[in-house]
């Protein structure tokens, strides 16, 4: 299949999926949640003007057509969302557009998730290579069991344990995300300080998610190693490292990309909890705040952004897969 045509098809697919996500969001928050004038509007305007005329309420009713029939509301909702209006916060920061609240938080989360994914993948490949090559030996058993144990641990609990042992008992790492508390710092110290604060959250990520990559690589190596070309490689006298690097890994790499596709959904879920425990001011922390404040428009906006993010990341992984696999690329 033509690469450009594939790209086009994928784009159309993503757009359709985003449309369905928006519809699901509408269904959840405007139909299942109950009366939208109760759920999606601020309760009165401040303390003194509870019963009187309320400009924000009136404006929001008009903006989202909340006094109109369901089908009009749905059309209005789609129009608003696809023109970038995600709603208006009702309790967390009353009157502020949801998009304005989410935008700065998104960057913090993206950096955290990016650094964490890169680290997890790197370590996962190293561990997977060892245990795939030494299948059934003690090294493999130890790696497989410990990564599976890490995978079974709830990330909030791992965060608590790490903070307790390395920030509270032995004071090596910061307890709170007080990054930027010292205003006058040059660029280098700022970056170093940021990394300093990132170490424990990233470690939590690695512990709870490394099994994704190490086990996938182990299993695909197991499939590759008995192949004929591996026997040829050994027969022509390549060292173990060369066999692995030149013949085994390039073929075992592909399932890794597929694994990473499902991994994004997990990462978002993991990031939310890790941010809460480490008080990182990202999207996850915001989810917690929106939940405790019952700020439904804000929650709806976060849900929409997080889901779209995962869909886009998945599509990108698919395209990468296409790019990496010559059989698919040239077929």
């Amino acid at each position: 299949m033509n690469f450009r045509r594939y790209l086009l098809r994928k784009t159309v697919y993503v757009i359709i999926t985003i449309f369905f996500i928006a519809s699901l969001n509408f269904l959840l928050f405007q139909v299942i949640a109950g009366d939208p004038t109760y759920v999606l509007l601020p309760r009165g305007c401040g303390t003194s003007n509870v019963t009187g005329e309320c400009p924000l309420r009136a404006a929001l009713i008009h903006e989202w057509a909340l006094d109109q029939p369901l089908i009009v509301r749905f059309a209005t909702y789609l129009r608003n969302v696809f023109s970038g209006n995600l709603g208006t916060s009702i309790t967390y920061q009353t009157g502020v557009p949801v998009a304005t609240i989410i935008a700065p938080r998104l960057w913090t989360t993206l950096i955290l998730v990016g650094v964490a994914t890169a680290t997890t993948m790197w370590l996962g490949i190293i561990l997977g290579r060892i245990s795939g090559w030494r299948r059934g030996r003690p090294a493999d058993v130890i790696i497989t069991l410990s990564t599976l144990f890490g995978y079974s641990m709830p990330s909030f609990w791992v965060s608590l344990l790490l903070i307790f042992s390395l920030s509270v008992t032995i004071r090596i790492f910061p307890v709170y995300w007080d990054f930027g508390a010292y205003a006058r710092m040059d660029l280098l110290s700022t970056v170093l300080d940021y990394m300093w604060h990132l170490i424990l959250p990233v470690a939590t990520f690695v512990i709870t998610n490394v099994a994704w990559f190490s086990l996938t690589l182990r299993n695909s190596l197991t499939d590759v190693l008995p192949e004929d070309y591996m026997i040829t490689a050994r027969a022509k006298g390549l060292s173990q490292g060369q066999q692995l690097r030149w013949h085994a890994l390039p073929n075992a790499r592909l399932p890794l990309v597929t694994a990473s596709a499902l991994y994004f959904g997990w990462v978002v879920s993991g990031a939310i909890v890790i941010e809460i425990v480490f008080t990182i001011q990202g999207l996850g922390q915001l989810t917690w705040e929106a939940t405790t404040a019952f700020d439904f428009p804000l929650l709806s906006g976060i849900f929409l952004i997080a889901t779209i993010g995962v869909v886009v990341a998945n599509a990108m992984a698919d395209v990468l897969y296409m790019f990496l696999d010559p059989r698919v690329r040239e077929a």
Partner: peptide
């Protein structure tokens, strides 16, 4: 399947 489970 693609919707992140925790937010959902």
């Amino acid at each position: 399947l693609v919707i992140p489970w925790l937010p959902f």
